[in-house]
Computed example of a mutant assay.
Amino acid sequence: MLTLADIDHAAVAALLARYGLALARVADGEPIPGSYWGDSEAGLIGSTVYARGDTPLHSLLHEAAHLIVLPDERRAAVHTDATDSVEEEDAVCVLQCLLGDALPGVGRERVYADMDAWGYTFRLGSARAYVESDADSAWQWLHDRGLADAAARSLRLP
């Protein structure tokens, strides 16, 4: 599984900055502030994503996507848990895959594989199948909020 230590930290910070977010690197072995799952999983507080070197990249992207989809007034109040609906969670799963395309040497295919290895479950059996064939409502949720088109432009996606 790809971790923050495996990729260019500056590229991740720059990607998050495009959306008004900050990346806070946590020292190895220290607890990650705002982590919903604990262990090495990324955390959220306000507009900051917290991660250690051993944080899986898919986790960092997932938590960042939660902040990206929130309006500023809700983002400021986030601590640990950002989701308020299944629809939002589904949209975040799509967006985290798209964000992988914006990082050199990562790409959505790697994010799909790591999500599957981590244990995300989808009706069609894989993250890729979900995003490409079963996420119409998630794509619509992103589109309705101006995020699908903005993500495509920002990330230069088809």
Score class of each variant (00 low, 15 high):
residue 9 H to K: 12
residue 10 A to W: 04
residue 12 V to E: 02
residue 13 A to I: 08
residue 14 A to V: 04
residue 14 A to T: 13
residue 15 L to F: 03
residue 15 L to S: 10
residue 16 L to A: 03
residue 17 A to C: 09
residue 18 R to H: 04
residue 19 Y to G: 10
residue 20 G to T: 02
residue 20 G to R: 02
residue 22 A to S: 14
residue 22 A to Y: 08
residue 24 A to E: 15
residue 24 A to S: 10
residue 25 R to I: 11
residue 25 R to A: 03
residue 25 R to N: 02
residue 26 V to S: 11
residue 27 A to V: 14
residue 28 D to K: 10
residue 28 D to A: 03
residue 29 G to N: 07
residue 29 G to H: 12
residue 31 P to M: 09
residue 32 I to C: 06
residue 32 I to D: 10
residue 32 I to S: 11
residue 32 I to N: 03
residue 33 P to E: 14
residue 33 P to V: 05
residue 34 G to N: 08
residue 34 G to C: 10
residue 36 Y to C: 07
residue 36 Y to K: 07
residue 38 G to E: 04
residue 39 D to A: 10
residue 39 D to F: 11
residue 40 S to M: 03
residue 40 S to F: 07
residue 41 E to V: 07
residue 41 E to L: 11
residue 42 A to D: 01
residue 42 A to M: 00
residue 45 I to P: 00
residue 45 I to Q: 13
residue 46 G to S: 13
residue 46 G to Y: 07
residue 49 V to K: 00
residue 49 V to S: 02
residue 51 A to S: 03
residue 51 A to Y: 00
residue 51 A to W: 01
residue 53 G to V: 09
residue 55 T to H: 05
residue 56 P to E: 00
residue 58 H to D: 00
residue 58 H to Y: 08
residue 58 H to R: 01
residue 60 L to W: 02
residue 64 A to Q: 07
residue 65 A to F: 14
residue 65 A to D: 07
residue 66 H to Y: 09
residue 66 H to I: 09
residue 66 H to W: 12
residue 67 L to M: 11
residue 69 V to F: 04
residue 69 V to Q: 15
residue 70 L to T: 10
residue 71 P to T: 02
residue 71 P to R: 12
residue 71 P to A: 09
residue 73 E to Y: 08
residue 74 R to Y: 13
residue 76 A to F: 05
residue 78 V to A: 09
residue 79 H to N: 15
residue 80 T to I: 14
residue 80 T to R: 15
residue 82 A to W: 04
residue 82 A to D: 11
residue 82 A to E: 06
residue 83 T to F: 01
residue 83 T to P: 00
residue 84 D to I: 15
residue 85 S to E: 08
residue 86 V to F: 14
residue 86 V to A: 15
residue 86 V to L: 15
residue 87 E to P: 01
residue 87 E to S: 13
residue 88 E to I: 01
residue 88 E to D: 09
residue 88 E to R: 12
residue 89 E to G: 05
residue 89 E to T: 10
residue 90 D to R: 12
residue 91 A to G: 07
residue 92 V to F: 11
residue 92 V to C: 06
residue 92 V to N: 10
residue 92 V to E: 03
residue 96 Q to N: 09
residue 99 L to T: 11
residue 99 L to M: 12
residue 99 L to C: 12
residue 102 A to V: 06
residue 103 L to K: 07
residue 103 L to G: 05
residue 103 L to T: 13
residue 104 P to C: 02
residue 105 G to L: 07
residue 106 V to K: 02
residue 107 G to Y: 00
residue 108 R to P: 05
residue 109 E to W: 07
residue 110 R to V: 14
residue 110 R to N: 06
residue 111 V to W: 09
residue 112 Y to Q: 04
residue 113 A to L: 11
residue 113 A to V: 09
residue 114 D to R: 12
residue 116 D to T: 03
residue 116 D to H: 05
residue 118 W to S: 12
residue 118 W to G: 00
residue 120 Y to S: 13
residue 121 T to S: 14
residue 121 T to I: 14
residue 121 T to F: 05
residue 122 F to P: 07
residue 122 F to E: 01
residue 123 R to N: 13
residue 123 R to M: 06
residue 124 L to T: 14
residue 124 L to Q: 15
residue 125 G to F: 05
residue 126 S to F: 07
residue 127 A to K: 02
residue 128 R to K: 14
residue 129 A to W: 08
residue 129 A to L: 15
residue 131 V to S: 03
residue 133 S to H: 15
residue 133 S to F: 09
